[in-house]
Design a protein around this nucleic acid. Structure first.
Lengths: 199, 199
DNA sequence: TGTACATCAGTGAACGCGCGTTCACTGATGTAC
DNA sequence: TGTACATCAGTGAACGCGCGTTCACTGATGTAC
C-alpha cells in the first residue's frame, strides 16, 4: 500500500497536527501511539516510518503548536491578546488553545530537548507581543519585553488555575475575570480605570 | 506482621507525605504504586489496606500538600510570599514546592473530585493572603481578594513557564526575575518605583 | 494477670491490560532501461 | 512510452515491560474470658 511522496508528507503533517491537539487535550502521557494513529486515520505500525520515537513526536507536535502564532497572537495587539487568551472559551477548548498553558507543567518533567522547544516558543511569543506593547515617552527600551513576560505569566497562570478547578466552579470563572480585568487595567495609555472615576 | 494502630496510622501518613512529594516531582502519571510504596519503605501489596485506589491517594496527597500552608504562606506577608515563591530555589525544588505550580496542569485532566481539592486549596491560599494584602484608605472591600487572585496567577504562571525551560536557561531565570520585580512593584504602599525617578 | 483466639497491616506472587516498539508482509509508487 | 524491478508508506500480529489491582498468606497486635 505504498502512497505518493506528497501524500506521505501530508499524512505526516496530519499526524503531527492531530498529536498536537491530543497532547494539549490529554497530556503527553494521556495519548498512546495507537490512540493517536487511530485518531489520525491510520494503524499504529506506520508510526515509526515517520518518527523515531514518541518523544520525537512530542517535541515536533509542541514546536508545531507553539510556532503557530498561538491563539493568533500575530494579528492581535496586547489588549486583544488578553481578551482572547484569558477567557472561558480558551480555558474550555484545550485542544486548540495555547500549548504553554496546556503542557507547560508537563514539559517541566520532559527532556531538555523538549524544554528547549518550549523556551523557543516562549521567546517567540514574548518577542512578537513585546514589540506591540504600548509604550509611553519615557519607556525603557526593554520595557515591552519585561511587561510581556509578566503578562504571559499572568495569562498562563490564570488559565492553569482556572482549569484546575472543577467544571461549573464559580472560582474558575472568577479567576479569569479578575485576572483579565487586572491585566487590562495594568496596561499604560488608558490611564487607570478605577472605581473612583465618576460621571 | 501486624503493627500497632498508632504505627499503622503513622505509616499511612508517611505514605501520603511521600506521595505528595513524588507527585509534585514527577506528576501523577510518573509515580507508580509500587514505586511509591518502595520509596516509603514498604511493599506494594499493602497499599490497598490504606487507600481504595491510586486516584484516592492522589486526592489525599494533593489535599495534604495544598493545605500545608504552602511555602509557609501563613507566616508571610505579601511581599514575603512573593520573595519566597517567585525564586529559583522554589522552581528547582519541585518536590517541596507549591502543589498548584507542580500539578495544576495535571489536575485539569483529573476527576472533578481531585479538581475540587485543588479549588479548595486555591480558595484557602487566596483567603489567607488576601487578608494580609496591604490596603490603602480608598480600597474596596474585596480588593485584597482580587489582587491575590491576580498575584497567585502571576506567581504560578512564572514558575510554570520557568520550569518549562531547559536547565541553565537564561530565559528561565529572566522570567522569575522580571515577574518577581513586577509583582513587587505592583504592590501599593511603596509608591511606584520607576526608572524615571532620579536624584 | 494469663491464656486462646480473632483481627488485620504488611508481604510478595500473580492477574489482565495497555503501553512503546519491532517486524514480516503488502502492494502501489518511483525508477532504470 | 512501455516493461521490470526496487522502494517504502502503511498494515496488523507480536514483543517485553510496567502498570494498577487482587489475593492467599504471615505473624504481631488487640480482645475476650
Amino acid at each position: 500500500m505504498r502512497v505518493t511522496k506528497a501524500q506521505a508528507q501530508a499524512n505526516r503533517e496530519h499526524i503531527v497536527e492531530t498529536a498536537s491537539e491530543m497532547f494539549r487535550e490529554r497530556g503527553f502521557d494521556g495519548v498512546g501511539v495507537a490512540d493517536l494513529m487511530a485518531a489520525a486515520g491510520f494503524t499504529h505500525g506506520g508510526f515509526y516510518k515517520h518518527f523515531g520515537s514518541k518523544a520525537d513526536l512530542m517535541a515536533e507536535a509542541s514546536a508545531c503548536s507553539l510556532s503557530k502564532s498561538m491563539v493568533g497572537a500575530d494579528s492581535l495587539d496586547v489588549p486583544g491578546f488578553i481578551n482572547v487568551y484569558v477567557t472561558r472559551e480558551h480555558r474550555d477548548r484545550r485542544s486548540n488553545g495555547c500549548t504553554l498553558a496546556a503542557l507547560g507543567g508537563d514539559a517541566a518533567r520532559q527532556s531538555d530537548d523538549l524544554r528547549t522547544t518550549f523556551a523557543e516558543g516562549i521567546e517567540q511569543l514574548v518577542r512578537t507581543l513585546g514589540e506591540k506593547y504600548p509604550t509611553g515617552p519615557d519607556t525603557a527600551a526593554d520595557e515591552g519585553r519585561k511587561q510581556m513576560i509578566d503578562l504571559l505569566s499572568r495569562a498562563v497562570g490564570a488559565i492553569v488555575l482556572s482549569r484546575a478547578c472543577p467544571d461549573d466552579s464559580a472560582l474558575a470563572d472568577e479567576i479569569l475575570e479578575v485576572c483579565r480585568a487586572e491585566m487590562l487595567a495594568s496596561l499604560p495609555g488608558d490611564e487607570v480605570v478605577s472605581d473612583s472615576v465618576g460621571p
